[in-house]
Design a protein around this nucleic acid. Structure first.
Length: 493
RNA sequence: GGUCCUAUCGUCUAGAGGCCUAGGACACCGCCCUCUCACGGCGGAGACACGGGUUCGAAUCCCGUUAGGACUACCA
C-alpha cells in the first residue's frame, strides 16, 4: 500500500470573523495533519467578490494563530502549491471549465439572472417536485453558442449533470451516501465574472494541492455528489471526505447564529476565554477519545486524534463546560502568565496604568496565586483585585460591615480591637497575623468568622475575597490600618 | 415541497448483540473542608424518542413513525 503524505486544508471564505464552527473545523484538520505527520494548509476561498470583507482574513489568521493552529502552507507563508488565494488562481479554473465544455461535460449558459428568477418563482408557485435550473441552455447548438459569445452576451459555464443513475459518496464517518442524479441540477462552475463557484474551485484546488482528506461541515453533504461527479469528469481521484456534525444553537434548534450570543473566536477571546480552553472544548464537540479523558491540550490531542472517533450527530453549542475548562486552565497558569493575560482587562478598568511599570507588575504577580482558583473568565479579575490595586477604597456601606444579628457598636468595638492588635504587629506576615487574630477572637469570646468578616469588609469592601491573612499581608500594614480606622469611624454615631 | 443527515441524562458524550441495575464530564442539589468566596473531596437526582420486526437475548441490527437539522444561489 502506498501511503501518500496526508495533506488537509482549512479553506475559509473571508466574509467575516472566524466562526466558532470554522474554528472547530480548522482544529480537527490541524489535529489530523499533526496526528499523521501531514501538512495543514490554509487556503483562502475569496471567489465571491460581493461578500468580500477586507478585515476578515486578518481576523481569521489572527484567531487561528491565537488558537495555536499553525499552517504549513498558506497565503502569508507560501508553499509549493500556491498561490493560496483562489482569486489569484483564476486561469486554472477557466482552463478546467473550458476543458469540460470541450469534452461535452459542461456547457455555456446565457440565461439572465432575471430569467433564472422567473424559473424559480414558477417552480415555487407550481410546488414542483424538483427545483433548480431548467437546463434551458444545455442543448444549445454550437452555432448559437458562438453567435451569442460573439455578441458579447454574458455567460456562465454549467456542469452537465447525468440525467440518470446514482452517485455514491464515501463518507469516512457515515459510510456510503447515495444520491439520485436526477435530483441534481446543472450547477454553475464558472460565473459570468470569470470567477469560479465553490464547487469548481474546491475540486480543482483540492486536486492540484494534492489534498488527501477533506474535513468540512455537515452542510456540504448535499453538494458532495456534485464534487464526486466532477472528479469523475476530470478523471481525478477524489479525496477522502469526512463531514463534521453541525453546531446547533444552545437550545438545539437551528444553526448556531449570532442571535444566540458570541459566534466568533474573537468574541470569546475578548470575553476572557483562554485558547487552551476553547480548543479543549471544541475538541470534544464531536470527538471523543477511547477512554474517558476530557482534559487535553492540543499537543496531546494531536497524538490521539483519529477520524473514527468523530461523531455524526448534530451538536448543541452550550458554553457551561467551556467556562469550566477555562477555570481549569486558568488554575494551571503560572502567576506571571496569568498576570500578563489579565493585564489588559485591569488597564481597561483603570486599575493599572498602560504601560504598566515593572514594580506594579511584580505586585500583580504576587496577587495571582490568591485569585487563580476564583476566576473563570479573565475579566472577573477586576472584582477580585481592585482593592489591592487602589490606594484608597470607598468606606464600605454599613450593612456590609454588619454580620446579621450584630449592632454597629459591637462591630465598631471589634474593628477597634483588631486595629489595636494589628498596629503592634511585627513582622506583618501570614503566620503572625493568623496567630494574633485567632487569639483576639478567643480573647473577645467571638467566633473567628464574627471577627474576620468585618475586617475583611473593612479592608476590601467585599464579602468574598481571598484568604484574609494573605489579603492583609499583600495589602500592607499601612493600608490595612487606615481602612480599619475609616470603617470603625463610619460606625461611630 | 424535494434530496440528504441525525436521534442515549438539561448539555457534551461512552456504548459496535449478552460485560448495562446504561458509564464519564459540565451544569444542578446535598454533605465535608473552611475566616468569606472559590478550589478540592464525597454523595444525589437525571437518558436509551415511539412502534414494529430479527434474535435465546437489542441502547446496539432492519423497517416505519415522529422529531430536529442541513441543503435546495452566477454564497461558501
Amino acid at each position: 500500500m502506498t501511503s501518500k503524505q496526508v495533506r488537509v486544508r482549512f479553506a475559509p471564505s473571508p466574509t467575516g470573523f472566524l466562526h466558532i464552527g470554522g474554528a472547530r473545523t480548522a482544529l480537527y484538520n490541524w489535529l489530523f495533519a499533526r496526528a499523521n505527520g501531514g501538512k495543514f494548509i490554509l487556503r483562502v476561498e475569496d471567489t465571491d467578490r460581493t461578500r468580500f470583507v477586507p478585515e476578515a482574513l486578518e481576523d481569521i489568521m489572527t484567531s487561528l494563530r491565537w488558537l495555536g493552529l499553525d499552517w504549513d502552507e498558506g497565503p502569508d507563508c507560501g508553499g509549493d502549491f500556491g498561490p493560496y488565494y483562489q482569486s489569484q488562481r483564476l486561469p486554472y479554473y477557466q482552463q478546467y471549465a473550458e476543458q469540460l465544455v470541450r469534452e461535452g461535460k459542461a456547457y455555456y449558459c446565457f440565461c439572465t439572472p432575471e430569467r433564472l428568477q422567473e424559473v424559480r418563482a414558477k417552480q415555487e408557485a407550481a410546488k414542483a417536485a424538483t427545483f433548480g435550473y431548467d437546463r434551458h441552455c444545455r442543448d444549445l447548438d454550437p452555432a448559437t453558442v458562438e453567435r451569442l459569445k460573439a455578441e458579447g452576451r454574458p455567460y456562465v459555464i454549467r456542469f452537465k449533470m447525468p440525467l440518470t443513475g446514482t452517485t455514491v459518496v464515501q463518507d469516512a464517518l457515515r459510510g456510503e451516501l447515495s444520491f439520485d442524479n436526477s435530483t441534481l441540477d446543472d450547477h454553475v462552475l464558472l460565473k459570468s465574472d470569470g470567477f469560479p463557484t465553490y464547487h469548481l474551485a474546491n475540486t480543482v484546488d483540492d486536486h492540484l494541492m494534492q489534498i488527501t482528506h477533506v474535513m468540512r461541515a455537515d452542510e456540504w453533504i448535499p453538494s458532495t455528489p456534485r464534487h464526486v461527479l466532477q472528479y469523475q469528469a476530470f478523471g481525478w481521484e477524489p479525496p477522502v471526505f469526512a463531514h463534521l456534525p453541525v453546531l446547533l444553537s444552545p437550545d438545539g434548534k437551528g444553526k448556531l447564529s449570532k442571535r444566540h450570543g458570541a459566534t466568533s473566536v474573537r468574541e470569546y477571546r475578548e470575553q476572557g476565554y483562554l485558547p487552551e480552553a476553547l480548543n479543549n472544548f471544541l475538541l470534544l464537540l464531536g470527538w471523543h477519545p477511547a477512554d474517558d479523558q476530557e482534559v487535553f491540550r492540543i499537543e496531546e490531542a494531536a497524538k490521539l486524534f483519529s477520524l473514527d472517533r468523530i461523531n455524526t450527530s448534530p451538536v448543541a453549542f452550550q458554553t457551561d463546560k467551556l467556562a469550566w475548562f477555562n477555570g481549569l486552565y486558568i488554575r494551571e497558569l503560572p502567576a506571571e502568565d496569568l498576570a500578563r493575560r489579565c493585564l489588559p482587562y485591569l488597564q481597561k478598568a483603570e486599575l493599572l496604568p498602560d504601560p504598566c511599570p515593572p514594580e506594579r507588575l511584580a505586585y500583580l504577580n504576587r496577587l495571582m496565586p490568591l485569585v487563580r482558583e476564583r476566576i473563570k473568565l479573565l475579566p472577573e479579575i477586576t472584582d477580585w483585585v481592585d482593592f489591592f490595586l487602589q490606594e484608597e477604597i470607598p468606606v464600605p456601606p454599613v450593612e456590609l460591615l454588619l454580620p446579621k444579628k450584630t449592632t454597629p457598636d459591637e462591630v465598631r468595638r471589634l474593628l477597634a480591637a483588631a486595629y489595636d492588635t494589628l498596629k503592634e504587629l511585627a513582622p506583618f506576615t501570614e503566620v503572625v497575623l493568623e496567630e494574633a487574630l485567632r487569639g483576639l477572637a478567643e480573647q473577645l469570646n467571638v467566633k473567628t468568622g464574627q471577627l474576620f468578616m468585618p475586617i475583611r469588609v473593612a479592608v476590601t469592601g467585599r464579602t468574598a475575597t481571598p484568604g484574609l491573612f494573605d489579603t492583609l499581608v499583600l495589602l500592607g500594614k499601612d493600608r490595612v490600618l487606615c481602612r480599619l480606622k475609616a470603617a470603625e469611624e463610619s460606625l461611630t454615631v
